[in-house]
């Protein structure tokens, strides 16, 4: 949270996450290179480099596919939320894996004194008009630049410096990078490799990512149709006991804004559903240690007034709530961030 900035805010969960991540990448690269070298032993250094290019390139593509799948998977099933917790480290590692892939390509040309050939390939403007023969390495460089930008701005400082909406928009460039990588593989590795495995995996991964986003988006839209608005514009949430204790029910204001109505024992309060950190779905979190806790990265807020506990400074908009005829109602017009608005009810 924002009491200051350290290099990495390690905790036990992040260490475990990163260890699993590094172990997974090491296992994949080792297995890929080991099995490939066993099947077709490399004859010289460029052959080994080629193997490294394929191993790191395919690993980066798989990692990108997983990263883009985590968001919709977590929306569809909360059991995937732990994967989301440290997704930024996943992204940074993906950049480094992709960078080794890119460096290996450079090295492949360098060890054979063929760098002028690489320069000619990249600067052959006539080839950019073709489909087959397109200088696909340019696409790889473009994707690597985007991944570098995202990795370099992944620290929480950039989130605060650029503001969450701008940071979020910048990091949506990951979709652009994925699209460029798909083209890079389709015009490169897929053309040079006659095996059906590459198009099947590439197409499968693309359809998987697109399909997951469509399914998750459809479910979100269904929930966004707006809750029924009653007298004076207030939205009925339900009897207090229907709001799960230490959790929330999410209602949608007529404009589409989601409101998380939490219950902590006999106390009921409403906050915006968007976490101030990365717009995480606060209403899918729980009340831990007396604070509403975002399921994405554990940012916490007091239910009473939407303020992060000291020394943290994040603050959320709250909404007026009332109990009428045994029904909890929420006014969808937000109060200024940090305004106390929770009420105590009799259960």
């Amino acid at each position: 949270m924002s009491a200051g900035f350290r290099a990495v805010q390690w905790n036990c969960r992040k260490v475990v996450y990163d260890l699993i991540l590094v172990a997974g990448v090491t296992l994949y690269i080792g297995a890929f290179m080991g099995v490939s070298a066993w099947q077709r032993p490399p004859a010289n250094w460029p052959d080994w480099t080629n193997l490294r290019i394929d191993a790191f390139g395919s690993c980066a593509f798989i990692m990108l596919t997983i990263i883009l799948s985590i968001g919709p998977l977590a929306r569809l099933d909360p059991r995937f939320l732990p994967l989301l917790y440290n997704r930024r480290h996943f992204g940074v590692l993906t950049f480094f894996v992709a960078a080794v892939h890119g460096w290996s390509v450079f090295e492949w040309f360098a060890v054979q004194d063929a760098l002028p050939g690489l320069a000619n390939e990249l600067s052959n403007t006539a080839a950019y008009g073709k489909f087959i023969g397109f200088p696909y390495k340019t696409l790889g460089i473009a994707a690597l630049v985007v991944l570098l930008l995202l990795a370099a701005t992944s620290h929480d400082f950039w989130l605060a410096f650029l503001t969450p909406p701008a940071w979020k928009a910048l990091h949506m460039l990951l979709y652009l990078a994925y699209g460029i990588v798909v083209m890079h593989v389709a015009l490169g590795a897929m053309q040079g490799n006659r095996s059906p495995l590459v198009p099947v995996l590439l197409g499968g991964a693309f359809v998987w990512v697109a399909g997951l986003h469509l399914v998750a988006g459809r479910r979100e839209r269904r929930g966004d149709r707006g809750s029924k608005v009653g007298e004076g514009g207030w939205i009925a949430v339900g009897p207090p006991e229907t709001i799960p204790d230490k959790a929330a029910r999410i209602v949608t204001a007529p404009g589409g804004e989601r409101i998380a109505v939490f219950r902590d024992g006999a106390r009921v309060g409403a906050l915006t559903n968007l976490c101030a950190h990365q717009n995480g779905p606060l209403g899918e979190g729980r009340i831990i240690d007396g604070c509403v806790t975002c399921p994405w990265h554990g940012f916490q807020y007091r239910l009473e007034d939407g303020r992060a506990p000291p020394p943290f400074t994040e603050v959320l908009a709250t909404y007026p709530v009332r109990l009428r005829g045994g029904i909890v109602e929420v006014d969808p017009r937000p109060l200024p961030p940090g305004t106390p608005a929770a009420i105590d009810v009799v259960l």
Partner: peptide, 24 residues
């Protein structure tokens, strides 16, 4: 200068922020 007064930034964080600052 760009952060609220008194916000501590560790040396490690400053090193990690350098690439992003160079790009932007």
């Amino acid at each position: 200068r760009v952060l609220p007064a008194g916000t501590p930034v560790s040396i490690g964080a400053r090193i990690l922020l350098w690439p992003g600052a160079a790009l932007l």
